[in-house]
Simulated assay, not measured.
Amino acid sequence: MSHDEQVAAEQAARWNGPSGRAWADNQDLLDRLYEPFEKLLVRYVDDASGQQVLDVGCGTGSTTLAVGRVSGGRAVGVDISEPMIAVARRRASSADVSADFVTADMQTHEFTDTRFDTIVSRFGVMFFSDPVAAFRNLHRATTGSGNLRMIVWRNPDDRDIMVAAENATASLLPDLPPRPPSVPATPGQFAFADPDLVSPIFRESGWRDVSIDPLDVDLSMPAGDMLRYVTTFGRVGVQLPTVDETVRAQVIERVSETFTGFADGADVRYTAACWLVSAQA
């Protein structure tokens, strides 16, 4: 097995295992927190009047369904995680929306009967073992005038709620997993954080008129929901199940104390640092 094949297999196991189940189990939480990103992508699709729209790394389908409501055509969501796709299909079956969902790896999956006018993604493209192959495959899946719009994470600073929680609990969680390096060859949340490394991927895979613009989005939820988010996802969320109940209680207390610096009435609010990436086929 090659290195790329091994990494792809690891990602498939991750998103069909604990990570995928965590996203599926907390679909309501993530939909509410990430709704501002969804609205941005929906607005773009509405402006672009795309008839055939592909949502890459669609997760539990919220963005796909929202896009389907405005595209005037067909929306397709693709994700490597069967647990998340199963949730997306259940949601679609109860919604009056033209949306389909496919469990597949976009590095290799071929859409033989459809060419897409628009490709969107909300935090779904940072986990490819071979990003050039993936975006070349996406390029092949578009029409001649197809376009792409995706949102990815920038490197966060201390104003990010996850970073603040990590700093507050570092002494209690000395085995916090390291942040993967911000390079596309290392799949992870911040793999696309460095635009100087990301731009060549698009050029090599056939895309043109590439722009990578900073996007700062205010995210807000009630304190109890934000606590659930921080202690389920990110590095604190990964480490928390490995500690005993005493340490767990101490971690939760410190995270809760951290929220005072982000308080907005009964809510916790912070600014998410992202990139908005656009390209033409």
Rank of each mutant, 00 (worst) to 15 (best):
residue 2 S to L: 07
residue 6 Q to V: 09
residue 18 P to C: 11
residue 20 G to K: 00
residue 21 R to C: 01
residue 21 R to F: 06
residue 23 W to L: 01
residue 28 D to E: 11
residue 28 D to P: 00
residue 29 L to H: 02
residue 32 R to Q: 13
residue 33 L to W: 01
residue 33 L to P: 00
residue 34 Y to S: 01
residue 36 P to I: 07
residue 40 L to Y: 06
residue 42 V to N: 12
residue 46 D to G: 04
residue 46 D to S: 12
residue 47 D to G: 11
residue 51 Q to F: 13
residue 53 V to M: 03
residue 53 V to Q: 04
residue 53 V to S: 12
residue 55 D to W: 03
residue 61 G to C: 02
residue 65 L to H: 01
residue 70 V to A: 10
residue 70 V to Q: 05
residue 76 V to I: 08
residue 77 G to I: 06
residue 82 E to S: 13
residue 85 I to T: 04
residue 88 A to W: 01
residue 90 R to D: 04
residue 91 R to I: 00
residue 92 A to H: 04
residue 94 S to L: 10
residue 94 S to K: 09
residue 95 A to F: 06
residue 96 D to T: 08
residue 107 Q to G: 13
residue 112 T to M: 13
residue 114 T to Y: 08
residue 114 T to L: 13
residue 117 D to H: 14
residue 118 T to F: 10
residue 118 T to I: 15
residue 123 F to C: 01
residue 124 G to C: 05
residue 125 V to G: 01
residue 126 M to I: 09
residue 128 F to W: 03
residue 134 A to W: 02
residue 134 A to H: 10
residue 135 F to V: 06
residue 137 N to S: 07
residue 141 A to H: 11
residue 142 T to M: 08
residue 143 T to D: 07
residue 146 G to C: 08
residue 148 L to H: 06
residue 148 L to K: 03
residue 152 V to Q: 10
residue 153 W to I: 05
residue 155 N to I: 15
residue 155 N to P: 07
residue 157 D to V: 12
residue 157 D to N: 15
residue 163 V to Q: 04
residue 166 E to W: 03
residue 167 N to H: 09
residue 168 A to Q: 07
residue 169 T to D: 03
residue 169 T to V: 14
residue 170 A to L: 14
residue 171 S to M: 07
residue 174 P to L: 10
residue 175 D to P: 05
residue 176 L to P: 00
residue 177 P to I: 00
residue 178 P to Q: 04
residue 179 R to D: 09
residue 180 P to E: 14
residue 183 V to F: 08
residue 183 V to M: 11
residue 187 P to S: 13
residue 187 P to I: 13
residue 187 P to Q: 11
residue 191 A to S: 15
residue 197 L to I: 07
residue 198 V to Y: 09
residue 203 R to N: 12
residue 208 R to Q: 14
residue 209 D to E: 14
residue 209 D to Q: 14
residue 213 D to R: 14
residue 215 L to E: 13
residue 219 L to K: 00
residue 221 M to Q: 11
residue 221 M to W: 07
residue 222 P to V: 13
residue 223 A to S: 15
residue 224 G to N: 15
residue 226 M to Q: 05
residue 227 L to N: 04
residue 229 Y to W: 14
residue 229 Y to Q: 06
residue 230 V to W: 01
residue 230 V to F: 01
residue 230 V to R: 02
residue 231 T to S: 13
residue 231 T to Q: 03
residue 232 T to W: 02
residue 241 P to G: 06
residue 241 P to A: 06
residue 244 D to G: 12
residue 246 T to V: 15
residue 248 R to A: 11
residue 261 G to Q: 03
residue 261 G to I: 02
residue 262 F to C: 11
residue 264 D to G: 04
residue 266 A to G: 04
residue 266 A to D: 13
residue 269 R to P: 10
residue 277 V to R: 07
residue 277 V to F: 11
residue 281 A to D: 08
